[in-house]
Simulated scan of single mutants.
Amino acid sequence: MKAYFNGTWIENDIRLPLNDRGLQFGDGLFETIIVKDGAVRFLKHHLTRIQKGAEVMGLKNLPFSIEELENVILKVLALNKIDKHARVKLQIWRQPSSRNGYHPTSLDVNILVTASEHVPFVSRVIEKVSFCTSVALTYSAVSRFKTISALPYVMASKEAEEKGMDDLILLNERGLVSECIMSNIFWIKDKTIFTPSLATGCIEGIMRNHLITQCHQSIDPIIEVEAKPAELAKADVIFSANVAGFYIFQNVNTRPFSTRHPTMQALINNTA
């Protein structure tokens, strides 16, 4: 694998100091960016989110314009001989500080851009979904961003595999529905769309924001809520979404749900 690292082009591995803050503390952020038919999707939104996260964490902004970042991504694809469809990972983390411990003294960041092939899809039905019991999410100043210290999602993914589930719905410390392992959750009752508010500790997903904007402009109303799991049982349809696509839930805790709904289909059609 060939990649971009701090202004140079590398292959297969990078060399980091023992006091690297990404390794020691997970002191950084990442974005997963989809390339479809050679076009980098939602790049402006990804760059805006990671810049906002960097500001909250006291990091310098990325030294890229949108055009420069797109050129880096396209060169990474070319170096790896990926023609059309890719999953790109942009990672930034704080460079080593001048003293030991949690307190950061550096504003500078390491920047790593990698890419792998991706099989594109618009939507897919997943059969087995349950609720996560091993971890609970918590709202904080950084909970809306994708941090490289992603241990709650690692633990949830491990639990899903052990239970034989396709995905898990994560709750927060108050028992409210927050999100899924790799995507934001939505449900529809009649013509109203619901999704957890950021106060539940969920990620401020790129697709989440896109769907909220779409609904406000032209589709059916969407409400950001703080909801208990019992509210999902009242839904006509439940799905999750991220920049890769839509995941339609056929069952939650063995309770069946419809996999068709005109409002959901309108969202999918407007995003494909």
Results as ranks from 00 to 15, higher is better:
Val56Tyr: 01
Asn110His: 15
Met182Phe: 08
Asn80Phe: 06
Ala266Glu: 13
Val154Gln: 12
Glu162Ala: 14
Arg87Asp: 06
Glu179His: 03
Ile268Asp: 09
Val154Asn: 04
Asn6Tyr: 09
Glu55Arg: 13
Glu162Asn: 07
Leu232Phe: 01
Asn19Cys: 11
Leu29Met: 03
Thr147Ala: 10
Arg124Ser: 14
Ile206Trp: 03
Ala156Asn: 04
Met207Lys: 13
Ala39Trp: 00
Arg99Tyr: 10
Ser240His: 06
Leu168Arg: 06
Glu31Cys: 08
Ser197Pro: 02
Tyr139Ala: 12
Leu74Glu: 05
Leu168Tyr: 04
Gly22Cys: 04
Thr147Cys: 11
Ala136Tyr: 01
Gly58Trp: 07
Met182Ser: 15
Val88Leu: 05
Thr271Glu: 02
Gln214Asn: 05
Ala227Trp: 03
Phe42Pro: 01
Pro17Thr: 11
Leu16Arg: 06
Val40Gln: 02
Val56Ile: 15
Glu31Leu: 10
Ile34Met: 12
Ile248Lys: 05
Val113Phe: 00
Thr271Ser: 15
Cys180Glu: 08
Leu16Trp: 00
Pro196Asn: 10
Gly7Asn: 08
Lys2Glu: 14
Gly58Leu: 09
Asn269Glu: 15
Val177Ala: 03
Ala227Leu: 12
Leu198Pro: 03
His216Gly: 14
Ala156Leu: 06
Glu173Asp: 13
Lys75Pro: 00
Ala241His: 02
Phe145Pro: 10
Ser183Thr: 07
Gly58Ile: 08
Lys146Glu: 12
Ser218Ala: 14
Ser98Thr: 11
Arg255Glu: 11
Phe194Glu: 09
Asn110Pro: 10
Ile248Ala: 09
Val154Ile: 15
Gln217His: 12
His103Pro: 01
Ser97Val: 05
Ala272Leu: 05
Asp83Thr: 12
Ile34Val: 14
Trp9Glu: 10
Leu69Gln: 04
Phe239His: 04
Ser258Leu: 09
Leu168Ile: 08
Met155Ile: 15
Phe249Pro: 04
Arg124Trp: 00
Trp93Leu: 07
Pro152Gln: 04
Thr105Glu: 15
Val113Glu: 11
Thr254Glu: 14
Met207Val: 05
Gly28Trp: 08
Phe30Ser: 07
Gly175Val: 13
His45Thr: 08
Tyr4Asn: 11
Val72Lys: 00
Ile193Val: 15
Asn209Thr: 10
Gly26Trp: 08
Ser123Thr: 06
Val142Gln: 10
Phe145Ile: 09
Glu231Arg: 11
Ala199Phe: 01
Tyr153Leu: 05
His46Asp: 06
Leu168Glu: 06
Lys44Asp: 14
Met1Cys: 07
Glu162Leu: 13
Phe239Cys: 04
Gly22Thr: 08
Val113Met: 06
Gly201Leu: 02
Asp27Thr: 09
Val135Asn: 02
Ala233Phe: 10
Val35Ile: 14
Met57Tyr: 06
Val113Ile: 15
His216Lys: 15
Cys202Gly: 03
Ile169Lys: 05
Glu127Ser: 14
